[in-house]
Design a protein around this nucleic acid. Sequence first.
DNA 1: GTTGGTGTATTAATCGTATAGTACATGTAT
DNA 2: ATACATGTACTATACGATTAATACACCAAC
Lengths: 123, 123
Amino acid sequence: MDLSFNNRDPVYLQVVRYFKEQIAIGDLTAGQEISSRRELAGLLKINPNTAQKAYKEMEEQGLITTERNFPSRITTDEKILNAVREELILEAVSSFIASVRPIKVPLDELIKMVSEKYSQPGE
Amino acid sequence: MDLSFNNRDPVYLQVVRYFKEQIAIGDLTAGQEISSRRELAGLLKINPNTAQKAYKEMEEQGLITTERNFPSRITTDEKILNAVREELILEAVSSFIASVRPIKVPLDELIKMVSEKYSQPGE
DNA sequence: GTTGGTGTATTAATCGTATAGTACATGTAT
DNA sequence: ATACATGTACTATACGATTAATACACCAAC
């Protein structure tokens, strides 16, 4: 589990995002059991309450389910799972477009830069 | 001056970004006089200190210069001015790539979505 | 010299986030 | 039964960033 935090966004949201990415690429699949709050907190060296907040957020979004005091699981609702990938991509694209539109950059220049950067392994 | 704020990013940074965009598209040019802190604050309905913080940030980045208590001006350093556009675009592209790389989206899918979204007038 | 507009500096108040600490109910395993 | 791990809930605190409030120094114009 490699998760490097940035300072701007709330930690619990970065955790949520990490799980969404894992779902999007299929590393987390329907019904799969995930770490307990306390275990995750230990792994990421965050406070258990922060982990709890992240899980609660995911719960409200329907990404995970928890029955009684069993370890939480990824939802089995394929509809939700499939939507995650689309959601992440759409958000990224929308945000990108919004950033760049005011500057009136020609589309082909954008595409060229994206293509070059995307191939490069370096950051 | 149309600047709509979002709630996540600090206002003073959004102001800085706005000025950078104006510089990038040539609406603000070398040596041009800009609003005073208080005037800007009145226009945007923000606290004068927030305007001050934005201007101070721009000053530190060399975007504007202030002599004594004269109104601040856009720098005449063309080198800096030309770099602004590149900087904004590069930041946007880098951030976009960083968001999307973990999801392993095929490049052509990305390009397709960007192209479609960029043409659409709607948000 | 007084007024009013500059930029600047300092301090106070606000707010979201993160953390700490604790407690509780539930269920499993020994 | 006991011990332990689970999820959940609640309060309190700390901290940093942001914003607000105020005051000050400077200078031009009248």
